[in-house]
Amino acid sequence: TEYKLVVVGAGGVGKSALTIQLIQNHFVDEYDPTIEDSYRKQVVIDGETCLLDILDTAGQEEYSAMRDQYMRTGEGFLCVFAINNTKSFEDIHQYREQIKRVKDSDDVPMVLVGNKCDLAARTVESRQAQDLARSYGIPYIETSAKTRQGVEDAFYTLVREIRQH
Score class of each variant (00 low, 15 high):
Glu90Tyr: 07
Asp107Met: 14
Tyr140Asp: 03
Gln98Lys: 11
Val43Gln: 09
Ser88Asn: 06
Ser135Val: 10
Gln149Gly: 10
Ile138Gly: 02
Ser135Pro: 02
His93Met: 15
Asp46Gly: 10
Val80Ala: 05
Ala133Cys: 02
Phe89Gly: 07
Gln24Phe: 03
Arg160Ser: 09
Lys4Ile: 03
His93Ala: 15
Ala121Phe: 06
Ile23His: 10
Asn84Gly: 14
Leu52Trp: 06
Asp131Glu: 15
Leu78Phe: 13
Arg127Val: 11
Arg148Ala: 02
Val80Thr: 08
Ala10Arg: 13
Asn115Cys: 15
Ile54Ser: 05
Ile20Cys: 02
Val80Gly: 00
Asp107Phe: 12
Arg160Lys: 13
Glu125Trp: 07
Ile54Ala: 07
Ala121Pro: 14
Thr57Val: 03
Glu75Phe: 06
Gly150Arg: 06
Leu52Met: 13
Leu55Phe: 05
Leu22Pro: 04
Arg40His: 07
Asp56Cys: 00
Leu78Gln: 08
Phe27Glu: 06
Tyr136Leu: 14
Ala82Gly: 12
Thr86Lys: 13
Ile35Asp: 02
Ser64Trp: 14
Val8Glu: 02
Tyr39Ser: 01
Glu90Cys: 09
Gly12Arg: 13
Gly9His: 01
Ser16Asp: 01
Phe155His: 00
Lys15Ala: 03
Gly137Asn: 08
Arg148Met: 15
Tyr70Ala: 07
Phe27Lys: 03
Gly9Trp: 00
Ala65Gly: 13
Val108Tyr: 12
Gln42Glu: 13
Ala120Leu: 06
Glu125Arg: 05
Asp53Glu: 12
Asp153Trp: 02
His165Asn: 11
Ile83Ala: 14
Thr34Tyr: 04
Asp118Trp: 01
Ala154Phe: 00
Cys79Gln: 01
Ala82Phe: 03
Gly11Tyr: 10
Tyr140His: 03
Cys50Pro: 09
Gly114Asp: 01
Gln21Ser: 14
Met110Asn: 00
Arg127Met: 14
Ala133Ser: 06
Arg163Phe: 09
Pro109Gln: 02
Cys117Trp: 13
Gly59Leu: 02
Lys15Gly: 01
Asn25His: 12
Asn84Cys: 15
Arg40Asp: 01
Gly150Tyr: 10
Ser144Gly: 11
Ser88His: 06
Thr57Lys: 00
Pro109Phe: 05
Asp29Cys: 10
Glu161Thr: 06
Asn25Leu: 07
Thr73Cys: 09
Phe27Thr: 04
Gly11Ala: 14
Asn25Trp: 09
Ala133Phe: 04
Tyr31Asp: 05
Lys41Pro: 13
Tyr95His: 06
Ala145Ile: 00
Asn115Glu: 13
Thr86Trp: 07
Asp56Tyr: 09
Ser135Trp: 05
Gly11Cys: 12
Thr143Asn: 06
Val6Thr: 06
Thr86Tyr: 04
Arg163Gly: 08
Thr49Gly: 12
Lys103Gln: 01
Thr73Arg: 08
Tyr39Phe: 12
Ala133Tyr: 02
Gly14Asn: 01
Ile23Ser: 13
Leu52Tyr: 11
Asp68Asn: 12
Arg148Cys: 11
Asp46Met: 09
Ile23Trp: 05
Cys79Tyr: 11
His165Ser: 15
Tyr70Asp: 10
Ala133Glu: 04
Val6Asp: 03
His26Gly: 13
Lys4Val: 06
Gly47Ile: 09
Leu132Trp: 14
Ser64Tyr: 15
Gln21Thr: 12
Thr86Arg: 14
Glu75Ala: 05
Arg163His: 13
Ser105Val: 15
Ser88Glu: 11
Leu55Glu: 15
Phe27Gly: 04
Asn85Pro: 02
Val28Cys: 10
Val13Gly: 10
Ser135Phe: 10
Ala129Lys: 01
Arg96His: 01
Gln149Met: 02
Met66Trp: 02
Ala17Gly: 12
Phe81Thr: 05
Lys116Thr: 10
Thr143Arg: 00
Leu22Met: 14
Thr19Ile: 08
Phe77Thr: 04
Val111Tyr: 01
Ala58Thr: 12
Val113Asp: 00
Ala10Tyr: 03
Thr34Lys: 03
Leu55Lys: 01
Ala65Tyr: 15
Gln98Tyr: 15
Tyr31Ser: 04
Asp107His: 14
Met71Phe: 06
Gly14Leu: 02
Ser16Asn: 03
Tyr156Asp: 14
Leu78Pro: 02
Tyr3Ala: 06
Arg67Gln: 12
Ile162Asn: 02
Lys41Phe: 05
Glu62Arg: 14
Gln69Glu: 15
Arg134Glu: 05
Asp91Phe: 15
Leu5Met: 07
Leu22His: 15
Arg72Asp: 06
Ala145Glu: 00
Ile83Asn: 05
Gln130Lys: 05
Ile54Arg: 11
Ile92Gln: 05
Thr147Asp: 14
Asp104Met: 15
Ile23Lys: 11
Gly47Arg: 07
Tyr39Pro: 00
Thr86Gln: 15
Gln24His: 03
Ser135Gly: 10
Asp53Gln: 01
Glu97Tyr: 07
Gly47Pro: 08
Asp37Tyr: 02
Val8Tyr: 03
Asn84His: 14
Thr1Met: 08
Arg72Ala: 07
Met110Leu: 15
Val159Pro: 00
Lys100Ser: 09
Asp29Ser: 10
Glu142Lys: 10
Ile35Ser: 04
Gln128Asp: 13
Ser16Thr: 12
Lys116Phe: 15
Gln24Tyr: 02
Ala10Val: 11
Lys87Arg: 06
Gln149Phe: 04
Glu90Phe: 10
Gly59His: 03
Asp46Phe: 10
Ala65Asn: 01
Gln21Asn: 15
Gly74Asn: 02
Phe155Arg: 01
Asp68Phe: 09
Glu97Trp: 03
Asn84Leu: 07
Val8His: 04
His93Trp: 14
Thr143Gln: 06
Tyr63Ala: 06
